[in-house]
Design a protein around this nucleic acid. Structure first.
Lengths: 211, 211
DNA sequence: TAGATTGTTAATCGATTAACAATC
DNA sequence: TAGATTGTTAATCGATTAACAATC
């Protein structure tokens, strides 16, 4: 069974919608409701569920509590996901302070830096020297990392992460990491995302000018 | 002519690859070279170019300088793109300090905040009260914004941006902005991106366990 | 010229959606 | 029962890639 990235993104969105519905007092839901909430066809919802063997009742829809539970297990939210951050620059610091992760069950355990001036062992999320990376990751059995170092340092940092046993990375450096075949790499390139907005705004204005 | 988001992302990638090739001293390039650099088929490259009426020589390929020039115009990089940031929290601050934008011709003009303690008119990028937003945007003819306020404030902030004449937004709040039909909204949801890594790492380990 | 590369059409591939039998 | 909803198959849609005539 091959699952693509978009499908998983939809599962997360279903889950968020379900949490809202639950907080409004709803107990069950139909594929139609979820489809509306997320903006896809109802058959998409049912197909996504069937890929993960989630079944409803032919006329009664799906029980929200059960559904949330199952989605949480699929998405790995039934246990805390431990993460390290590499680089205590702007993006790394923003990630450490970001409130959104904690409530999604993602716990940032530590940040690793090269600049001694930034070290801080006593912070809630300690900032530690890079050469402690491997020991820390092994000791805490961490599989996930956020890579937020300068572009030039990214490839080398990725080497260290692999060596330490990391399996998945959210990478903010705008380069394609080499030797990453059997690993999970999610590249997030904020320049490109903003450039995209620039293009489509300009295109919008060109088409308006034509009218 | 309908252009999709992925196509524009590829154009940005071609442009980055071309800049590297140029810095290595290359003068011309074939669709095959670019395809390798970006990881698509060479016919994809030629098709993308033909959508924007970019033509090469049947045997001589494309002149790098010319190509970069044309891509820059398409991507709006021939002039400085002015942007405002809403929210001087972690993400907003990270965006203001982010080095990547400047070198891509994107200039953050100001940040707007609700908390008076964060105001700072004298900073290189001033942090100003929200009620100056509209005047500032009109005065500087700004079309783009980065929305980095707390979830609960995002919809209201979007209303203010629209009212001020903003046309495109990179939105970090994990909500779908309402009343955004004729605008360009690019939602960047970092929780979802990291959750995605979580899922695929777990899936990887499950498939390893089976072997 | 022979060989190589473009530009474009046709084929393929994958993902989304529509349709509908099964059934509650 | 009649009506509504699921689960799944088939149809559609869109994007990517292969193929190849044109041509330098």
């Amino acid at each position: 069974m091959i699952i693509n990235k978009n499908c998983i993104l939809r599962l997360s969105r279903y889950k968020n919608a379900l949490t809202r519905l639950k907080s409004l007092g709803f107990v069950k839901v139909f594929s139609d409701n979820l489809a509306d909430a997320v903006g896809v066809a109802s058959s998409q919802v049912r197909k996504d569920f069937s890929l993960f063997d989630i079944q409803g009742k032919k006329k009664g829809g799906y029980l929200i509590d059960e559904l949330i539970e199952k989605l949480n297990i699929i998405l790995g939210k039934n246990k805390v996901q431990k993460v390290v951050v590499l680089g205590a620059g702007n993006m790394g610091t923003a990630m450490m302070n970001y409130r959104g992760f904690e409530k999604e069950g993602i716990k940032i355990m530590a940040c690793f830096e090269i600049d001694p001036e930034k070290f801080n062992r006593d912070a809630i999320i300690p900032i530690l020297p890079l050469d402690e990376l491997k020991t820390f990751i092994k000791e805490h059995k961490i599989k996930l990392a956020i890579l937020a170092v300068p572009d030039m340092a990214a490839q080398q940092a990725w080497g260290m992460l692999k060596d330490a046993g990391i399996q998945g990375v959210m990478n903010f450096a705008p380069i394609r990491l080499r030797d990453a075949e059997d690993y999970v790499i999610n590249n997030v390139n904020l320049e490109l995302e903003l450039e995209n907005v620039v293009y489509f705004v300009n295109a919008l204005n060109r088409s308006k000018a034509k009218e």
